[in-house]
Amino acid sequence: MTWRPVGLTRDVPAGRVMRAWVDGQDAVVWRSTRGVLSAWDNRCPHRGMALSHGFVRGEDLACLYHGWHYGAEGGVCSLIPSHPDLTPPDTIKTRAFQSAESDGVIWVRLEGSPDLAPPAIAPGLDPLRSFEIRAREGDIAHGAAAKPFEPAILSLLFNPIAHDRTLVTVLIDAQATSDQRKLASRWCEDVRREVEA
């Protein structure tokens, strides 16, 4: 399976949780207090609650519904609050995916050879923003090409999140000024307006 760019490193700081889509799979991406990044099936094994609504407690992600805790190392359940004295069997665990970070972008893939790293990004680029467009990758790439951004170099990464929805991650020349970055952010909106119209 391929690595999918699901968001920016800076958008998931320690203690934060987000939802991501990876090849049709609903996933939760979160970072522990000490900084360990994990990507799991976005479903609590207990009663199916989306773990992306959960909260971080140290090195655990806790489910919002009944507070079951799952550890960053291996996704094994470490606490069932309704039975606080019970040591949960290690068969209770979340389904973990592979996650990696490079050049400020978070990548997730469902499975694959562990030593194959995510694609390298051209040097000298900074992550700008990630945002969603209700269109397919091909149409977006086409729309973007028809409207070249003049002030600075941009690079676009795509993650299809549904048949007609795509998460676009935009990188910009690391030398770009704040004003150029804001212009580029507006350019993203222009492309979206055009492609969705």
């Binding site: 968001g7 920016l8 958008d11 934060r16 987000m18 991501a20 923003r129 990630s130 945002f131 969603e132």
Partner: peptide, 14 residues
């Protein structure tokens, strides 16, 4: 209307 595609909004909400 989910917050998934809105990282800056999520950061501000937090």
């Amino acid at each position: 209307l989910e917050h998934d595609g809105f990282p800056a909004i999520r950061r501000w909400l937090y």
